[in-house]
Computed example of a mutant assay.
Amino acid sequence: MRVEIWSDIACPWCYVGKARFERGLAAFPHRAEVEVVHRSYQLDPDRAKGDTEPVTAMLTRKYGMSEARAEAGEDALGEQAAAEGLAYRTRGRDHGSTFDMHRLLHFAGAHGRRAELLDVLYRANFAEERSVFGDDERLVELAAEAGLDADAARAVLADPSAHAAAVHADAREAALLGATGVPFFVLDRTYGVSGAQPAEVFTRALDQAWGGRSPLVTPVGADGDGQEAGQQCGPGGCEVPREG
C-alpha cells in the first residue's frame, strides 16, 4: 500500500499530523508493507524568498486576528504538539517562503533522504531558535544534518529551477485530488484522510484501505459516519485547537 502525504513545513498541523499518522501506522498490522511518500504543498506560494516575518505578525496581518488571539492559538498548538511528544516554540518563530525547502526535499528524495530531511526541517522550524527562512546556509546545514552532501544542496539552492517543476506538479496533483488544505493523506489513490486526525482514525483508515471497504473519510473532509475532518492549515489560515 502507498500512502501519500501532502504537507508544508510552515504548517503546524502537518507537524502534529505526521506524528499522529506515524502512531496510527505503528498500530497497523501490515505496516511493513506500507510505502509512505511525502509530497509538497505551499500554504503561501506567492511569498517572495526574502519576505520573512514573525508568525504572530503574519497571523494578525493576513488573517485579521488580534495579537492575543494569535498567541493563544500558538499556545494551544504547543499543547497539541506536546501531547505527541513534540517540542514547539510558541513565541519567536518566523514565517516565510517554503519553496526552497520543498525543492530541497525533492532533491533529498532523489537520494533516499526525504523523510530524514523533512524531520530535520520540522524540528528546525517548530522547536529550534534559529529561523529556517531566508538563509541558504542554514538550509545547507540542515540538509547535511539529514545526510545529504552540503555542496550538492548548496548547488540546488543556487539554481531556482532545480526541482521547481516537481514542487509545482505536487501542488497541481493535490488540487486535482480535492485537497483544500494540509496535511492531506491519500491511501492507494482511493481513500483520502483530511487533516491531523487522531492516531486511531489513521489506523482505521489503513485497515479499510487494506481491506478494500468503503472510505473512512473522503478527500474533501467528512465521511458518512460523521467523523469530523482533522485540523488543517489552508489558504484561510490554520485552525485553532478546540478547548477541552
Results as ranks from 00 to 15, higher is better:
Arg89Asp: 06
Ala83Trp: 05
Ala81Cys: 09
Arg89Met: 07
Asp94Ser: 14
Glu84Ala: 08
Gly96Ile: 09
Ala83Lys: 12
Met101Ser: 03
Gly109Tyr: 03
Arg103Glu: 04
Met101Asn: 02
His102Pro: 02
His111Arg: 15
Gly112Arg: 09
Ala110Ile: 09
Gln80Gly: 00
Arg113Pro: 09
Ser97Arg: 09
Ala82His: 02
Ala82Phe: 00
Phe107Arg: 02
Arg103Trp: 06
Asp100Val: 10
Gly85Cys: 07
Ser97Trp: 02
Leu104Trp: 01
His106Ile: 14
His95Ile: 14
Thr98His: 01
Arg89Cys: 05
Arg93Gly: 15
His95Asp: 07
His95Phe: 15
Ala81His: 02
Arg103Gln: 10
Ala87Thr: 12
Ala87Arg: 14
Gln80Asn: 09
Gly109Glu: 14
Ala110Leu: 07
Ala83Leu: 09
Gln80Lys: 13
Phe107Ile: 03
Ala82Ile: 08
His95Pro: 00
His102Phe: 04
Arg113Gly: 06
Arg91Gly: 09
His106Pro: 01
Thr98Cys: 12
Leu86Val: 09
Tyr88His: 11
Gly96Trp: 05
Ser97Asn: 09
Gly85Met: 06
Tyr88Trp: 11
Leu104Ala: 03
His95Cys: 11
Arg113Thr: 01
Ala81Ser: 12
Ser97Leu: 04
Leu104Lys: 03
Leu86Arg: 11
Arg93Thr: 15
Met101Tyr: 01
Gly92His: 07
Phe99His: 14
His95Arg: 10
Leu86Pro: 04
Leu86Trp: 05
Arg91Ile: 11
Arg91Trp: 00
Gly96Ser: 11
Ala87Pro: 10
Arg89Trp: 01
Gly112Tyr: 04
Ala82Lys: 11
Leu86Gln: 12
His106Met: 12
Leu104Met: 15
Thr98Phe: 00
Phe99Gly: 06
Asp94Thr: 08
Asp100Arg: 08
Arg113His: 13
Gly112Asp: 06
Phe99Glu: 13
Arg113Ile: 02
Leu104Phe: 04
Arg89Lys: 15
Leu105Phe: 13
Met101Glu: 10
Asp100Gly: 08
Ala110Val: 08
Asp94Trp: 05
Ala110Trp: 02
His95Gln: 14
Gly92Gln: 09
Arg103Thr: 09
Ala82Asp: 04
Leu104Ser: 06
His111Leu: 08
Gly109Cys: 10
Leu104Gln: 05
Ala108Arg: 09
Ala87Asp: 13
Asp100Glu: 15
Tyr88Val: 10
Ala83Ser: 14
Arg91Leu: 13
Leu104Tyr: 00
Asp94Ile: 04
Ala110Thr: 14
Asp94Arg: 07
Leu86Ser: 11
Leu104Cys: 10
His102Tyr: 06
Gly112Val: 04
Arg91Met: 12
Thr98Tyr: 00
Arg103Ile: 11
Phe107Trp: 13
Tyr88Arg: 07
Ala83Gly: 11
Thr98Trp: 00
Leu105Ser: 09
Leu105Asn: 05
Thr90Ile: 14
Arg91Lys: 15
Gly92Leu: 06
Ala82Tyr: 01
Gly85Asn: 05
Thr98Gly: 02
Leu105Gly: 07
Thr98Pro: 00
Phe99Tyr: 15
Glu84Tyr: 02
Asp94Leu: 05
Arg89Glu: 05
Ala81Glu: 02
His102Arg: 01
Thr98Leu: 12
Ala108Ser: 12
His95Lys: 07
Tyr88Ala: 04
Ala83Met: 12
Gln80Val: 10
Phe99Pro: 03
